[in-house]
Design a protein around this nucleic acid. Structure first.
Length: 780
DNA sequence: TACTAAGCTCTTTTT
DNA sequence: GAGCTTAGTA
């Protein structure tokens, strides 16, 4: 498809005035945006007067590359990026107006949560009632609706709802949290938008500056904007009114983050003179897939009318796989990929597996590894979230911004330097009492009598950080990072740890340092009207603070199968797609069954998943699944039944110990390897009321496991002799009352070095983790 | 204060 | 499965 169709062309050429493009899945949305920007540049608009906003770094990177392809290097001067990164940049330029240092730290969710935890402790609030994640959610949604701490405290309706949720002091937590962030010179993700609004509201001259600077404003995925983003856009576009929003209400899947589908539904009210274009022809998928998607989404009530269609070939039917367990599901998917690769000589990159929750990736990974298919997992715990990386970065953050409280708390006693909990609690009390940042108290520990016993250790820490800061001024980012890592004692701690995990952590630090080196050597995108970016440690930290795992590409081998959540897959497409875990309570999620709106969002999520497929789509479900430590049984997802049955082909399961093959009839499912047990274990072996789990202490007279030395072949019998898990050794044979024989094995990928008893099925595949034992592994 | 083992609890999606 | 807490020891 090289030419634009009529509707696309109209959307591209209408560059003046408000424009909304409703773009169905696969209708060439990015193409329209790209050509539109190219068209503006052709007509003589300076690229740095065009602001193009996306939701992910990936999307903005891709668009920039495509425009560069059409327009050449000039495209680098576009103001293009995610909402968060573009406005973070703007805030750094204007920071002092709001009382922030321009080197302000960006707190990620973990930083925010740990700050909330310290505040809760100070306020003596129960963190079972005030769950940090819930609190953060409330604060986040307040900020996204531009409700300041003061407004929150004064709003009787909000206070009322907090009170009825038994959280009457939430307003105060919010207020303290905001004050602490400010004192620490830190903004969280929501602050980046909240403070941009504050800036544009309080300083009309600044607003005017940016209103005139940006002649054109373009927004991708408009259906995902929240109120805060919406107000920023309204303000910036108020003068020129050249705003173009592109989106698809059927793909709105971020309401949990404050996204308001009304923004796209109300566009015509906001801009009555605006033009609306609908892109309804799908260029991506086969007839079958387009029709299936249509048959799903038509069950939703909230939507703009549109009819997505395609000229493409009919294509294969959609396959549905039924597995007995999550492991079997993984096996079936992996085999499916293998066979397809054999048949069509496809590359790994032509395949993707999408799931609802990150935790589902594990079973899939194991199956892929077993048959040597390379894969790459996006999302989950990213490189920058690993403990050792966060530790090093915390040191760097303190060097750049010593007031950064989250960083200080993280490293003040790591590596251990005699500053324990007692001292830290006293520090916090002091800081609160005299209204000083923690760092000020640490640095001047001498003058606070309550810190007397720890003065020496505190001052040592302070002078170390100050020395790092002084060095940092005259060193490159890389040298400075190296210096910090070595002299903080971090490197030594990791170097001395010769366990498998310790070595991996050491290597991760090396990788981080290499990354910094690369950063100092590559040239980064800056805007024409700005000074070129200095390769300082501060700028490195800024450049990674808004990165996610999806933005990190590995040079090793790029022909890999993609594994990601459906949320992360938006905007992507794959020849062969597997969507797994189509089970009630998982997809749709149990937590979304409360209201029609939530269920419809899950359905839109399924719609997004299905429309990622170009040629072949396979859906799968497992009748029982290992979740939070226990096996549970479930039914196929209601969404499966919504697909037009003429488009679907049921595939016989590889092995099915049960006769019941019918849709929805498999509730009791379960195989010989767990879940949905065909017979209840004899009661004397089971901890009363445990439901079959192996958590908690085994009853004294009712042991759960017996360890048998490898040399002596164990008799197989139903009874058990207990032993302490601490005695477990790699390779030991172990008998389990319910699961039978198993071996003790090191679990791959576990950070804490615990070993587990594992059972093997008849294929020699790992099946059930029975029990953990914490033992350190040492290399020979 | 530092460290370890084991118990308890909760479980969606992400810039 | 994993983070966090608690109890106990050094």
């Amino acid at each position: 498809m090289n030419l634009l169709n009529e509707e696309q062309r109209l959307a591209v050429e209408q560059i003046d005035g408000p424009v909304m493009v409703i773009a169905g899945a696969g209708s060439g949305k990015t193409r329209v945006l790209t050509y539109r920007i190219a068209h503006m540049m052709h007509k003589g608009t300076d690229p740095f007067r065009i602001l193009a906003l996306t939701f992910t770094n990936k999307a903005s990177k891709e668009m920039r590359e495509r425009i560069e392809h059409v327009m050449g290097p000039e495209a680098r001067n576009l103001w293009m990026g995610t909402f968060h990164s573009v406005f973070a940049k703007m805030l750094r330029i204007e920071a002092d107006l709001l009382g922030y240092p321009s080197s302000f730290t960006i707190y990620d969710t973990d930083d925010s949560k740990s700050l909330i935890k310290t505040i809760l402790k100070e306020m003596n609030l129960d963190d079972k009632v005030y769950k940090p994640s819930t609190i953060l959610g409330r604060i986040s949604s307040a900020k996204n609706n531009l409700i300041s701490p003061v407004e929150y405290a004064e709003d009787s309706e909000i206070r009322g709802s907090d009170e009825s949720a038994q959280r009457p002091f939430l307003w105060e937590v919010y207020s303290r949290y905001a004050a602490r962030c400010f004192k620490a010179g830190a903004m969280d993700f929501d602050d980046l938008l909240f403070n941009t609004n504050k800036l544009l509201k309080l300083y009309p001259d600044i607003l005017a500056k940016y209103q005139h600077k940006f002649k054109y404003v373009l927004v991708d995925e408009y259906q995902d904007t929240n109120y805060s983003q919406y107000v920023i856009l309204r303000r910036l576009a108020a003068v020129n009114r050249n705003i173009c929003v592109v989106g698809d209400d059927a793909q709105s899947i971020y309401s949990f983050r404050g996204a308001n589908i009304q923004n796209i539904l109300n566009f015509q009210k906001d801009y009555p003179e605006g033009k609306v274009f609908k892109l309804e022809q799908n260029y991506r998928s086969t007839q079958t897939i387009v029709k299936a998607a249509g048959s799903i989404i038509k069950n939703n009530k909230d939507q703009l009318s549109k009819e997505v269609w395609t000229d493409n070939v009919q294509g294969d039917k959609i396959k549905v796989l039924r597995a007995v367990s999550d492991n079997e599901e993984g096996r079936m998917v992996a085999n499916g990929i293998f066979e397809e690769k054999m048949r069509n000589h496809s590359h790994n990159t032509d395949f993707a597996i999408l799931y609802r929750t990150n935790s589902q990736s594990r079973a899939l990974e194991e199956s892929l590894r077993r048959i040597n298919i390379l894969y790459r997992v996006y999302g989950g715990t990213s490189f920058y979230q690993r403990k050792e990386i966060r530790d090093v970065i915390a040191y760097m953050r303190m060097v750049v911004n010593p007031n950064d409280e989250a960083a200080l708390q993280r490293i003040i006693n790591y590596p251990a330097r005699g500053i324990g909990d007692t001292t830290i609690n006293r520090l916090i009390t002091c800081a609160d009492k005299y209204d000083k940042p923690l760092w000020e108290v640490v640095k001047n520990a001498v003058i606070y009598p309550e810190l007397k016993s720890a003065v020496g250790n505190l001052l040592n820490f302070a002078s170390m950080i100050e020395a790092f800061a002084i060095n940092n001024r005259s060193m490159s980012a890389y040298d400075s990072a190296m210096y910090i890592t070595k002299n903080s004692g971090l490197l030594k701690v990791l170097y001395d740890d010769k366990s498998i995990e310790g070595i991996a952590r050491y290597e991760n630090i090396e990788e981080l340092l290499n990354g910094i080196k690369e950063y100092t050597e590559e040239d980064t995108i800056t805007f024409l009207d700005e000074a070129p970016e200095e390769k300082s440690l501060a700028n490195f930290l800024q450049s990674i603070s808004l990165l996610t795992d999806a933005d990190k590409d590995d040079p090793e081998n790029n022909d890999r199968v993609t594994l990601m959540t459906i949320h992360a897959s938006k905007g992507l497409e794959f020849e062969n797609l597997f969507v797994v875990g189509l089970e009630e309570n998982l997809f749709p999620s149990q937590l979304s069954l409360g209201s029609r709106a939530e269920l419809e969002e899950e359905r839109r999520l399924f719609y997004v998943a299905v429309t990622r497929a170009k040629k072949r789509l396979t859906l799968s479900y497992a009748t029982s699944r290992f979740r939070f430590g226990t096996m549970i049984s479930n039914e196929p997802s209601r969404f499966l039944k919504e697909i037009d049955p003429s488009l679907v082909e049921m595939t016989a399961p590889l092995r099915d110990p049960f006769e019941d093959n019918s849709w929805g009839g498999g509730g009791f499912g379960g195989g010989k390897f767990g879940g949905g047990y065909t017979r209840e274990p004899k009661s004397e072996y089971v901890k009363p009321g445990s439901g079959g789990g192996f958590k908690g202490k085994p009853p004294i007279n009712n042991p759960i496991g017996k360890i048998i030395p490898k040399s002596a072949p164990p008799p197989i019998r139903p009874g058990f002799v207990a032993d302490d898990t601490a005695n477990l050794q790699e390779g030991m044979r172990v008998e389990h009352q319910r699961f039978g024989m198993g071996n003790v094995q090191l679990i791959e990928g576990r950070g804490d070095g615990r070993k587990a008893v594992i059972q093997f099925d008849e294929f020699g595949e790992k099946n059930i983790i029975l029990k953990f034992a914490k033992l350190k592994m040492h290399l020979n």
